[in-house]
């Protein structure tokens, strides 16, 4: 009988171990989220671009021997009523050169609204070489009813950009995040 008890206990232990393993895999599912972000950043998957970048003169000497064209587009997600467009549709520059462009946005509704711009760049293999030192996509944009704004974007393209890339497209999609913003308890009342 004592033998059977030990046996039952060891079965219980194994079951617990296996359950722990399952729990670990549940955690692994969530771990895939940051892993994916790292993976995207390394490979430029989905044309995700990095965050704010410090422009250092030393590393960013300009490569005058070649020119790159950057094309801009701006789109609204379906329920987003803002007018949004790039004020320059494309610019041509040298790798390493600091470039500034502006986007225009206007909130035509009668409410104060919050927007988040999501950038995406193609070709994907160029995403890693686009460095933005200033972008309206770094923060959420808040516009009062009827308010318009010109939003700056300052960037440069790394000299190491693959030689076969001569044209890139940087696209912004505007999402309405007013409800999320309000839900997080931030003040949205006009001031």
């Amino acid at each position: 009988m004592a033998e059977a008890d030990t046996h039952q206990r060891s079965l219980g232990r194994q079951a617990a171990k296996l359950a722990l393993y399952a729990l670990g895999m549940f955690g692994f599912g969530f771990l895939l989220v940051p892993l994916y972000d790292v993976f995207c950043e390394v490979t430029g998957l989905n044309g995700k671009t990095g965050g704010k970048y410090q422009y250092e003169q030393a590393q960013a000497s300009v490569d005058e021997s070649r020119a790159v064209t950057m094309q801009f587009t701006a789109n609204n997600n379906a329920a987003m009523p803002w007018e949004v467009r790039p004020m320059q549709h494309q610019v041509t520059f040298h790798p390493g050169e600091l470039v500034q462009v502006t986007f225009y946005a206007r909130n035509p509704t009668g409410q104060r609204m919050v927007a988040q711009a999501v950038p995406s760049v193609v070709p994907f293999k160029s995403a890693d070489y686009l460095h933005k030192t200033e972008c309206f996509c770094f923060t959420q944009q808040i516009l009062d009813a009827g308010e318009a704004v010109e939003m700056p974007l300052i960037f440069f393209v790394d000299r190491a950009l693959p030689a076969d890339v001569s044209k890139m497209t940087l696209s912004y999609t505007l999402f309405d995040v007013t409800q999320n913003f309000a839900a997080k308890g931030k003040a949205l009342s006009a001031n």
């Binding site: 997600n77 379906a78 696209s171 999609t173």
Partner: peptide, 28 residues
């Protein structure tokens, strides 16, 4: 350049052998 405004769509013309997903927020 392919993107979507709401859910994921996929643009397919068999004669071109192109089928590419249009994903909201991203460009293909």
């Amino acid at each position: 350049l392919l993107t979507a405004a709401d859910v994921i769509h996929s643009w397919w013309v068999p004669a071109f052998a192109i089928k590419k997903d249009a994903i909201p927020g991203f460009v293909n």
